[in-house]
Nucleic acid binder design. Structure first.
Lengths: 220, 220
DNA sequence: CAGTCTTCTCAGCCGCCTCTCAGGCGGGCA
DNA sequence: TGCCCGCCTGAGAGGCGGCTGAGAAGACTG
């Protein structure tokens, strides 16, 4: 979600998290564009009036880069741009402020559903599965208990399975900071290994020295 | 393209081939499903009303097998199924007969474009491949393990394959310095040769005496 | 308020990676 | 044929990235 009004952004984040969504925030256009480029998002909620880089330009830029992540645009009704502009730019849907929270969620679900056919609700990597909605993780048919932080880390790695993910990226998305000691990531990867790999003789969580970590898509 | 009306299928095939697409035909659902399972298709055009196995079931079956090839569904407007059904099944787009040929091509291009964005760029030189996102290198289908420095060097050489690249350029781009002893480049080229060339009897990493190195684009 | 769980910091250890060095090889040229 | 210079390579030292056990501080629960 790219939204510069912090109170509104925080409120929507809480609400959506309660619905079971995982929400990353960006507070200006530059940051939003940067995060969207990382990929891994099912949908982007994009305000038009933003500091540094307008939502208009964020959308234009993403589409120019052939990034087709679904985008739901938000705008004040007295804004410079209107719905036709938004859709012309490659947005997938459009809401005018003030909007109803319920309507926002409904539109989001519609956008997600549109993509749902291609994306399984449960993340998997080999026989390792993670269900974001139910907060459950299993190796084969054996349940694995994880703490919230461990779960968030594993979810992020599974969404990007087979890719090498740097500690900086992990800190940004899982810890929501970037200037923390990266050692905390090493510690938590260690915890995960002891829970989802070691007891099963697996090696799905691989260290890529100097680059980050990779979760093997075939489960290690 | 899975379409049982032979005249229509042949006409579309000719038209699409003229646009530069390579088109395989199937005339019933069983055959279509069988061919789609072979993989290697960028998009499937799938009629709903088909002999032996309906497009509805072909789509359902493919998704159940976690085959996420983009599917464009075609149907008669008076058909038993409507657009919502098609999309719910995991189709990516939907056209109602009669449709305009121009619209079909536009939709196909949209689907292809969407997938291009989510597919990571992989560098290749002959049967040598390097995936920057996954940090993986393979000669043919054999994985090759590289250290970070080796990987960075090979990536740079592959991005400029077939060109002669001087040691100074390599130092600048891979080591980020220019006043280092160029011998380190020689050492690392040697390491790479032992990992990606020698075990396979290849000679992709060529020395151009007095000028630098060249990575043969056909893989050596 | 006690007990438990979770998160995070810290410091020490380990092993791989990086780079240097020196000797060897061979192509080109006089 | 013999020399020079550019390139190759084996050996080894040192550094640094990553792992882990211990424990402190904070959050939650009953």
């Amino acid at each position: 979600m790219v939204e510069d009004e912090r109170r509104m952004a925080a409120a929507l984040q809480r609400g959506l998290q309660a619905e079971g969504f995982a929400v990353d925030l960006a507070h200006d256009g530059e940051d939003g564009l940067h995060q969207a480029r990382q990929g891994g998002y099912d949908v982007v909620v994009l305000d038009i009036m933003l500091p540094r880089l307008s939502g208009y330009n964020v959308c234009k830029q993403l589409r120019a880069e052939e990034n087709w992540v679904p985008i739901l645009m938000l705008s004040a009704k007295d804004g410079e741009y209107d719905m036709a502009d938004g859709l012309d730019l490659g947005a997938d849907d459009y809401l005018t402020k003030p909007f109803s929270y319920v309507v926002l969620v409904a539109r989001l679900r519609a956008l997600l559903r549109r993509d749902a056919g291609r994306r399984p609700a449960v993340l998997s990597a080999g026989d390792l599965t993670l269900d974001p909605a139910r907060r459950k993780v299993a190796r084969g048919d054996r349940q694995v208990e994880l703490t919230p932080r461990e779960f968030a880390l594993l979810e992020y790695l599974m969404r990007r399975h087979d890719e090498v993910v740097s500690k900086a990226e992990i800190l940004e998305h899982v810890w929501d900071t970037f200037d923390t000691d990266p050692n905390v990531v090493e510690v938590y990867v260690g915890y995960l290994r002891r829970k989802v790999d070691a007891p099963f003789g697996r090696n799905a969580l691989q260290t890529v020295r100097g680059a980050g970590y990779r979760l093997a898509g075939d489960g290690g």
